[in-house]
Design a protein around this nucleic acid. Structure first.
Lengths: 240, 240
DNA sequence: TGGTATTTGTCCGTATGTATC
DNA sequence: GGATACATACGGACAAATACC
């Protein structure tokens, strides 16, 4: 697995930062690093840009690159970065836990004006409308409401919905997912949330709205994932 | 205000995309754009990388750069991108609304072990501990709990806390804010949330945890901003 | 206050690698 | 396999912000 050069350098620098190998809380100059890693300054610059994006350092013109103090870690829940969390299975894999799925409803419907305004699909589009419950170690974690374009995710059925729709799309249909936009909001729990999620004494749920693009740039999935407030947090890094 | 080249190109391309001037839903090739804008392919590549980051397009090796279908807009609340929202005043300015602040409590305390685990300040650090209520057009919007290092934000007082602490830091103390990390969670409303925010029949609040860095890379502020669920949403873009 | 060295930011031109069709 | 188009990398140049004398 020959990694890309700037990515190797990025990893090395990150490791050095985490293990406190720069006691001055500054990275060496870019020209110095370029010599050390036997590459151009340009490449070093890209690696450091990555460290900037992820909040490890902050570069300042004329001064150098400052290493940022690390934060207290909060491990009592899933801390997602919306930009990089990938899929639910990926999360659970990371946390060494098992996820199971039960399909509560599976229908084929046509998008009307009202649904169009919510999902972004044009009115008249044929979609699969699926409701599922995702369990983590046998405890309810998410209530998913999915809408998939029928002309993209052709041949979807309950059995596939029970295992992994994404595996079906990529491995069987050989289609590629391009990108997604996610929005998080807090909402009053619906009846179904109360019925199926273990809300305890919460009367709210978190909702992740997921808009997903297939390789030609068309929207093919709209999903709402309702979750118990306790289970998730969302983190981001900002530069001034 | 002479903008930098790749940023100008980025803006132009974004405008073209939004106004649907590429009917094939593809950007022109990078070499073509380089000719059109009289610059190197390198610069075009950077501008397009920016469009990728913000979710307007997705570049695919060997194929080109796909324009992504736009999403339905949701305008009933503040839709924040955690990475770019800046400060509360900045939000309100954008929404053409007035923000006022009332200081509920102003103390000087020393960080103990327990508070250290929450804030990231070392035990023994002297901090200002401030509770404030932020109103938008005279309706309660946020309940802020701030901790500022005394040795960084020297000479803070109630009067400053009532106007703008950030103006004080930058304009009076001439210090620069480097970066911040933000985490969003949902929590059960505390008594003070119920007392001061207009929660209606919600029993939950959203909380933004804010860790802020000053120019030498040290953490100098920890803030919790409690908000009414209705008021906010958080959006992010993801690439595969 | 002003000038100079330092350091990152931006950009160019070119070359090579690699995925797609 | 060949053509196309984006991805990565190099080395050099100048701009702009900062620090220091």
């Amino acid at each position: 697995m020959p990694k890309i050069k700037f990515d190797q350098i990025y990893e090395t620098l990150k490791d050095n930062i985490i293990n406190n190998r720069y006691p001055e809380h500054m990275l060496p100059r870019e020209v110095e690093l370029a010599e050390e890693f036997h590459c151009s300054r340009n490449t070093i610059h890209r690696a450091i840009a990555q460290l900037n994006n992820e909040g490890y350092v902050q570069s300042i013109k004329g001064r150098g690159t400052v290493i940022l103090q690390s934060l207290p870690i909060q491990n009592d829940r899933f801390f997602l970065n919306l930009r990089s969390y990938g899929s639910i299975p990926a999360i659970t894999q990371y946390h060494k836990a098992d996820v199971t799925t039960s399909v509560m409803s599976f229908q084929e419907i046509t998008v009307d004006e009202k649904l169009s305004a919510v999902t972004g699909f044009d009115p008249g589009t044929e979609v699969y409308y699926i409701q599922r419950l995702r369990y983590l170690d046998n405890k309810p974690l998410l209530r998913d409401v999915n809408y998939f374009r029928k002309d993209v995710v052709t041949g979807l059925n309950v059995s596939i919905a029970q295992s992994s729709i994404y595996d079906y799309i990529t491995d069987t249909l050989h289609k590629k997912i391009l990108a997604a936009r996610r929005i998080v909001r807090i909402k009053k729990a619906e009846e179904k949330d109360k019925d199926y999620l273990s809300l305890g004494d919460y009367d709210c749920v978190g909702v992740i709205y997921n808009y997903v693009y297939i390789s030609d740039g068309t929207l093919f999935e709209y999903t709402e994932s309702h979750f118990v407030p306790d289970n998730f947090g969302f983190s981001e890094f900002v530069q001034y």
